[in-house]
Amino acid sequence: MWQKSKPYLLLLPATGAIVLLFFGGLFDGMLKSLGYFPAIAERQLHLTAYTELLSSDSFWESLSLTLRVAAISSLLAGIVGGMLAIALFMMNQSAKVKESRLLQRLFQLPLTIPHLVAGYVIVLLFMQSGLFSKFLATVGIIDQITDFPVLVNDPFGWGIILAYTWKEVPFVLLMVYPLLARIRDSWRDVSRVYGAGNLSFIREIALPIMMPSWIIAVFIVFVFTFSAFEIPFLLGVTYPSMLPVYSFQLYMSGTLADRPEALAVNIILALMTIVLGLIAYYFSKRWNVTKGWQ
């Protein structure tokens, strides 16, 4: 008995801490979003916060902005990351192994940079008084730096999209490249003998092989950009703001009465993340075509 349960007992402190912090926080948030606030003598559970939230325009605008930014940035990251993976793979095939390795390292750099720093980098580069704008003005492509499009703290969210794309491209690359690397050199020979040029090879062999893991990668990026806080906080506008920022704004608004709503936003975010996660999990199971490869 002791022998069997020993590993579990040893893991208990760590598991306990994780469960307490993660689910405890979530549970506490949920209770409060339902109006349970002993500090101000509120002990009744009700859905007021949710109904108010769902009937407010700013919530819906915030949600649509969040979905749009997450969708565009994950798609962009997916497309750029996928194209880079294929380019690296084809370079590897055409005996440019050294160059390919070097570029691969280079492309992995943004992975090591925290999101907050990535946000600042975008600010410094793309602000109207930023590096690119000043450069273009100096070269004479634009007359004044104010002619540079507003890409940072803009209502559409381009700054956020840029930052996420830049930061998540290497992630997509990291997810799909190992699959491409498993394509054997001799498959290229086989496909060439049977009439496949470079494009056909990419279409018939490389793309289908990387597709399952590409879709999962894009999904993960989507779910992440959907619920992350620091980049939209740094690069977004006050109104409309993305959901995590909206929640933060409500929580810090100064009135305790707004807090259940702020927490309701969080619970909704958490639920959506769970649903998206389940969908991703379902597809990752279905597309497990890589099993049985030597």
Binding site: R184, V190, V193, G195, A196, I209
Partner: peptide, 20 residues
């Protein structure tokens, strides 16, 4: 180039594409 020759080649291993 080999893709224009319309030859076929059978290798020592089957080398079938696993995803097809």
């Amino acid at each position: 180039p080999p893709e224009a020759r319309r030859f076929s080649m059978v290798f020592q291993e089957p080398l079938l594409f696993p995803h097809m």
